[in-house]
Nucleic acid binder design. Structure first.
Lengths: 133, 133
DNA sequence: CTTGACTCCGTAGTCAGCTACGGTCGTAGG
DNA sequence: CCTACGACCGTAGCTGACTACGGAGTCAAG
């Protein structure tokens, strides 16, 4: 028969903070098993899986709301919907990537110029921040 | 003589929300002029400049705490310190960039695979989220 | 001198994703 | 049976950067 865990053990096995599990339950991402007449809930390997699913999705940048959407497609039979979610995420990631790349190049120019400065010249980093709109 | 503005006008000229200015004041990023005996404070072009400085720094990814540090170097005479701040920021930006790039490539592979799927095969996106740790 | 727009000020709410606290109850080991 | 350790539960706090609200005061135009 299947092993079961209390919430603390589940937290350890899935490497997720206990309070985080309770938080996910409140958000409806993780189901709570019935508790036997005022007893203690027992979780199964399915719950471990689900917590891993959530973490994997988060690692790809999905928000918990989006994770909720993905969990509805858990049976793997709605690939088009999953793809749409992935595309949205990808678009967002690419936007952020472009932003960061602009920042990276601006910043590295400034840092380099600060390194090249000799004597009492106005600091290029500060000067750039003071520049017109 | 110099023009002065009330906070609302300052907000318009610097294109910053009025409450944001008050927030910056509380954080000590922007000084408040004395108010003449229970009257209304009057701001100058210097304040507009400072708000722009803050926005520029934020656009390079500096946090408001870091902006505070930068503002201490406003005279442009402490280039080494400014450079150090810039380097820290740059390191952080590059870390985030690397993270996002990993996400981008993982996600684009998955989206592509979802696009290539024919028939009733298990959705690659979902399958990947369900995969082992 | 009144009206109405604006300022001042403190406090509280927003977003996301947790994390913590504290009192009460269940339960496993000795 | 007693004692810990943990589960349960609601609620509150945290981060960062705002944004909103409400009541009192000020100021300029008409």
């Amino acid at each position: 028969m299947r092993e079961t865990y209390t919430i603390g053990t589940l937290a350890q096995r899935a490497d997720v903070h206990l309070e985080t599990i309770r938080y996910y339950q409140r958000r409806g991402l993780v189901g709570e098993p019935d508790r036997p007449l005022g007893g203690v809930r027992r979780y199964t390997e399915d719950h471990v899986q689900r917590l891993r699913f959530i973490r994997h999705a988060q690692e790809l940048g999905f928000s918990l709301d989006e994770v909720g959407e993905l969990l509805k497609l858990e049976d793997g039979a709605h690939c088009r919907e999953a793809r749409t979610l992935g595309e949205r995420r990808l678009a967002d990631v690419r936007r952020k990537l472009a932003d960061l790349q602009r920042i990276e190049s601006a910043l590295s120019v400034l840092v380099d110029r600060c390194g090249a400065v000799k004597g009492r010249v106005r600091c290029p980093m500060i000067a750039s921040l003071q520049a017109a709109p």
